[in-house]
Computed example of a mutant assay.
Amino acid sequence: MIKEVHSLNENMQLMMEQFILGKQDRFGRSSEKMEDRYQIHFMKVDGKIVFFNEAEAVCDLEAAEPDDLETKPSKSKKQAGKKDKDISRLTIHVIPHYITEEELIAEFGENGWKQLPDAISRQYRFVPAKVEVSEHHIGVYSSKTDT
């Protein structure tokens, strides 16, 4: 029993060493090496000691500023008719919503109404693997006596 416990302890020690070495390899100082060995050091500039290569100390203050520090993205104008062009490739199901003539006569009286251009409302429907457009044509009516 003692030999077995001893061998298990040795195995655990080996695993712990491998774990620690793995952490050191991943997060240790060797993974954060700087490519420029002169990046951080003490310098003497104009008789003063400068720490850590401060940009203000080592830059040329007499150099001209660049014209464009940042390039601004160009804004393109919206294309007129792009939405209709995109919809033209999709399947459109027209769903009419009109009032019957009897209901119109009851509401406005005989020859008391006129039909205006339809109000069109589009609703996108996603059917797996394809997109369709449901186009609702809604009848719009007004009284002839109203102005």
Score class of each variant (00 low, 15 high):
His136Ala: 11
Lys83Gly: 02
Lys130Asp: 09
Lys44Val: 14
Ala64Ile: 08
Val133Trp: 01
Ala57Ser: 11
Asp36Gln: 03
Ile120Trp: 03
Ile95Glu: 13
Asp68Gln: 10
His97Lys: 11
Lys75Ile: 10
Arg125Ala: 02
Tyr38Val: 02
Lys72Ala: 12
Asp25Met: 03
Asn53Ala: 08
Phe42Gly: 14
Ile95Trp: 07
Met16Gly: 14
Lys85Val: 00
Asp36Glu: 09
Lys114Glu: 15
Ala64Met: 11
Pro73His: 01
Glu103Lys: 13
Leu21Gly: 12
Ala55Thr: 03
Glu101Trp: 08
Arg29Gln: 15
Glu103His: 14
Pro128Leu: 05
Leu116Val: 06
Ala129His: 12
His136Leu: 10
Val45Tyr: 09
Glu132Asn: 07
Asp118Ala: 06
Glu107Lys: 08
Val58Thr: 09
Asp36Val: 06
Ile92Gln: 10
Met34Arg: 11
Glu62Phe: 08
Ser30Val: 11
Pro66Cys: 00
Leu104His: 04
Asp84Val: 03
Glu65Lys: 05
Ile20Asn: 15
Pro128Asn: 12
Gln24Leu: 13
Asp60Met: 07
Ile87His: 07
Lys75Thr: 03
Glu65Ser: 08
Ser88Ile: 05
Asp84Ala: 05
Lys44Ser: 15
Arg29Val: 15
Lys130Gln: 14
Ser74Lys: 13
Arg37Glu: 05
Cys59Asn: 08
Lys33Arg: 13
Arg89Thr: 06
Val140Pro: 00
Ile87Gln: 01
Pro128Ala: 04
Ala57Asn: 04
Gly81Cys: 07
Ala119Asp: 12
Phe108Trp: 07
Lys44Pro: 05
Arg26Tyr: 00
Phe42Met: 12
Ile120Asn: 01
Glu107Tyr: 03
Asp25Val: 00
